[in-house]
């Protein structure tokens, strides 16, 4: 079956772009607006991959990654974080928390597709 990707971002336009890009590639996409929302969305449905922003209200991306890695069913799921160029230290922090990789904002849809294909296949 089609693989499901969860996009977590407080910016609706980024979420829309991620959804638009990935649905076109044949993935199913679910959206969440912050870390808390993401965790609750994952309770009702499963995802094969997570693409998360780092800077978000309520629960930030780093915390979300840690929470997910603590769950057996998300221990090995690819998680990609969206960072900005000014967040080099965040990148390291995210990796330490268990992120699979990162995409630096701003990015083009093709870059997103490349990375998703890379880690999810």
């Amino acid at each position: 079956m089609a693989k499901t990707i969860l996009t977590v971002d407080d910016s609706a336009s980024i979420r829309q772009m991620v959804r638009f890009t990935l649905v076109k590639e044949g993935y199913e996409v679910i959206e969440a607006c912050d870390g808390k929302d993401a965790l609750s969305k994952l309770q009702s449905g499963a995802a094969n991959m997570v693409v998360t922003d780092l800077n978000m209200p309520n629960m930030d991306g780093i915390t979300l990654i840690k929470e997910l890695r603590a769950k057996p069913q998300y221990k090995f799921v690819p998680i990609i974080m969206l960072t900005t160029e000014s967040q080099d230290s965040k990148k390291a922090e995210g990796k330490a928390a268990g992120a699979t990789g990162w995409i630096v904002k701003p990015f083009k849809p093709e870059q997103l597709v490349t990375v998703v294909k890379k880690v999810l296949g």
Partner: peptide
Amino acid sequence: ARIFRAMHTIKGSGAMF
């Protein structure tokens, strides 16, 4: 924090689109 985040999102998404 809220102000920073708003600026951050405007910048990040702005560059994307």
